[in-house]
Design a protein around this nucleic acid. Sequence first.
DNA 1: AGATACCCCTGTTAGC
DNA 2: TGCTAACAGGGGTATC
Length: 318
Amino acid sequence: MPELPEVETIRRNLENLTVGSRVLSVSEPTHPRTLRYQNGGIAALRAQLVGSRLRAVVRRGKFLWFPLDTVADSNSPEGQLCLVTHLGMSGQLRVLPSGMPPDAAGLGPGLEAETAETMLRHERLRLTLDNGSNLVFCDQRTFGHVELRPLVPTPDGAPGGKGDPGGLLPQGVEHIARDVMDPYLTYNAVASLRRSGRAIKTKLLDQAVVSGIGNIYADEGLFVAGIHPATPAGNLSRKETQALLEAVRGVMAHALEFGGTSFDRLYVNSWGNPGEFAKELNVYGRGGQSCHRCGTTLAKMVIDGRSSVYCPQCQQKR
DNA sequence: AGATACCCCTGTTAGC
DNA sequence: TGCTAACAGGGGTATC
């Protein structure tokens, strides 16, 4: 399930493999949900995407977009278009050499034929590029989506996200806060957390407060910070809240070095290789096992419908 | 506006 | 063994 480190890994892959190339064709989508946010469906997507050049790959939180050299409306200077994607929980953005079946396409060493077959079965959309490769969107559970959107200026003029050369972000993504790795993340996130009486775990997952955090890194960050997930967010001091965000950032930076977390094989990078961070996890998926720090049996509880694993000894409720 | 419940989907796992 | 139910997950939407 791709969170910030996984999406950033993919962003870096795509920056090398796709930027500068032009879209030659777009396949027929194999599932209606892939283009559910695309006005006009596949016809509109093709009309504006084919012939466009991918100018960059930008990420804010878990959203990824490609600014294009095409404008939605030539009368509007701010109507520059971008191709937006969100991977949901099982989306992949793979790059395959043109004309090659995936099982012969130099996939990662950990990838068996069965995995390649699974990938083929879940292929949703394919862009053929003029650099001789295909950009393939695969998605088993169809929570992911792809659509064209105009770019709009960021309110503060700062970059829209990692990899953005200007101060732009896609229309419809304005409500997504800056993420933990964003140097332009402001005090607003800390202030917003401290104003809420809801569980800190829940607030960490709120992408309008601070983005990029999913269930894995929320649990891991809370463990590092020594905070019980059910603690009301407003019970934490400013210092504790800042330390918590710093803990999450630290875990993510660490995970990035490992290429992200592949917990259930749904996440692979653009070459089809899994991330290696799963074995570094302290709590996520380890309920009932012993704490790496103190040996206490890790507890599991449901907070606002999300499973949470924590150490009852190291993470005391405030 | 913030909080809350619900929905989307499919492959895997737990439980009967 | 074979079935069903629960579970996993992010974010959009509707409702209060």
